[in-house]
Design a protein around this nucleic acid. Structure first.
Lengths: 247, 247
DNA sequence: AAAAATAAATTGGTCAGACCAATATGAATG
DNA sequence: CATTCATATTGGTCTGACCAATTTATTTTT
C-alpha cells in the first residue's frame, strides 16, 4: 500500500497538516482523474485509510479526515485535567514551553503560503477583536495559534498544539469567554498577537519566541487572577449561606 | 463493516478455527456468488480484512489467513514516526523544547524525595554506563529523564514526556542502541546527564535547562551524523551493485 | 429581504462485464 | 518418474452505469 501514490499523498497531507480533522477529501472521481487511476482503485485506497482510522465517509457527502490523531493525544490529557485540580495551570506552563519555540521555528521556516494564511487569520482576528465579537475572537484566536503551529513545519509541534487547543477550549471554555469579555484584556491580547505576527512576518525568530512566551504568561496570569477572584466570591457566598443556615 | 455478512462469516471462521493460518479463502468469484454480492463489494471486504492483518493475498494465488503476528500501532503518533524518517528529528526538536524547561522546573520544585529518587536512578545509570552495559544504559537513561519529569511537578510535562519516551523507544530503538554502542558517545552522554543531575541537585534552574538542551542537541546531532553515515554506505553499496550489472 | 420549499448537481455505494498478469492445475512428453 | 507446456483459475485493474443520500443552487413564499 505504501507504493500507492494516492495513499502516500493523502497520508502526507494529513500528517503535514494540509488536511486536518474534519476536512473533506477530494471526491473519488477527482482523485481518480488527478492520479490517472480508476475509481475502483481509488476506492480501495480510501477503504484502507478508512480501516486504519484516518478517514471516514458519509454517503453522498464525501470522505473526511477523522480526529483519531488529535484524540489520541487530547483524550488522556482531558482525563488528567479532569482528575487534577491545579492541572489547568500546568497546562498553561506547558504551553509556555511549546508556543515560544513554535513561534521561533515558524519565524525561521514559514513559507510564503504559510505567511499568507497567517495574515488572513490575523486580519480576521483583528476584525472580530475590534468589533467586540467575543465568540469570533475566541475562534480566530485558536486558529491563529494553529496557523503558527503549521508554519513551524514540525509535525510533532503541530499535532500536539492542535490537540492541546481542543482540550484547552473544551475545559476552559468559560474562562476564555470571560477573558475576552473584558475590553482591556482583549486589547492586550490583540496587541500580543500583533507582536507575534510581526515577528514571524519579519522573520525574527527570537523576537517571536519572546512575544509568544509573554503572551502565554499574560494569559496564565490573567486567568489566575480570574480564578482567585472567583474563589473569593464563592467563599463569600458560602459564608453568607452558612450564616443563613446558622452553621 | 460489522453488518457485512461476508466479513462476519470469514472472521468467525478464523476466530473459531475452521480457517487457520495459511489456509486459502474461497476465491472472490466464489464468495461473490455464494453471498449474492458483486465482486467489487467482496473485494472491498477482503481489503478490510487485509488492512486489519487477518489475511494476505498473492496475485494469481488467492487469499490466505495470515499468522496474525501483524504489529498494530496503538498510537497514531508512533505510526507517523515509524513511517517518516524526517519526523524523528521533529520529535528531537520537540524534546529540545520540553526537556530544557522540564529540567528547569525540576531544579525549581524537586522535593527531597524527588532528589533521592533521582540520585538512585543516576547512580544506576552511572554504573551501567561505566560497565559498558548498553541495554541497561538505555533503560536507566529513559528512567533518568522520567524522574526529572516527575520532579518538575507538572502533570502535563510528566504525561507527555512519559508517552513520548515510549514512542521514542519503540521507533528509535535501533538508533539508540547504536548511539550507546560507541564508547566515546556513551561517555559524552553520561557527562551530559551528570551536568543535568548536578544542576537539579544544586537547584540551579537555568543551568539545568541549558544542560538538558545541550544534551538533546548532542543526541540530535549525533543521530543525524549516524543517519548521514548510513546513507553514505547505502549509496556506496548501490554504486557497487550498479557497476556489477553494468548499469 | 429573509426564510422555506424545490430542483439540480455532486458524491459515495453497488453492480456487471471485461482484460491482464501471476499462479495453479493437469495433460502431454521425455 | 520427472519435465515441459497448454489451460484454467485467481487476484488486480479498468470502464461505464445506476441508485440513494447529500449538498448546492434556484425558485417560491412569507
Amino acid at each position: 500500500m505504501n507504493e500507492n501514490p494516492v495513499y502516500h499523498f493523502l497520508k502526507s497531507c494529513m500528517i503535514e497538516g494540509s488536511l486536518s480533522a474534519g476536512d473533506r477529501l477530494p471526491a473519488e472521481r477527482v482523485l481518480s482523474e488527478r492520479f490517472s487511476m480508476s475509481r475502483t482503485r481509488i476506492r480501495e485506497t480510501l477503504q484502507v485509510l478508512k480501516t486504519e482510522g484516518w478517514i471516514y465517509s458519509r454517503p453522498g457527502g464525501g470522505h473526511f479526515v477523522s480526529d483519531q490523531l488529535e484524540k489520541s493525544f487530547s483524550n488522556p490529557l482531558a482525563e488528567i485535567l479532569a482528575n487534577n485540580e491545579d492541572s489547568h495551570f500546568d497546562l498553561l506552563e506547558f504551553r509556555l514551553s511549546l508556543e515560544g519555540d513554535c513561534a521561533y521555528y515558524a519565524a525561521l521556516r514559514a513559507t510564503d503560503v504559510d505567511l499568507t494564511t497567517l495574515t488572513e487569520v490575523f486580519e480576521q482576528l483583528a476584525k472580530s477583536s475590534k468589533s467586540n465579537d467575543i465568540l469570533a475572537s475566541a475562534t480566530w484566536d485558536a486558529r491563529f495559534h494553529l496557523a503558527i503551529a503549521e508554519a513551524s513545519h514540525n509535525v510533532i509541534f503541530m499535532h500536539v498544539i492542535k490537540s492541546l487547543f481542543s482540550v484547552f477550549q473544551s475545559t476552559m471554555y468559560q474562562s476564555i469567554q470571560e477573558l475576552l469579555a473584558n475590553n482591556i484584556t482583549r486589547d492586550s491580547l490583540f496587541n500580543q498577537h500583533a507582536a507575534i505576527y510581526d515577528a514571524i512576518h519579519n522573520r525574527k525568530p527570537s523576537t517571536a519566541r519572546e512575544a509568544a512566551q509573554q503572551h502565554v504568561r499574560y494569559v496564565s496570569d490573567t486567568l489566575q487572577d480570574l480564578v482567585k477572584e472567583k474563589m473569593r466570591t464563592e467563599r463569600a457566598l458560602r459564608r453568607s449561606h452558612a450564616k443563613k443556615f446558622e452553621l
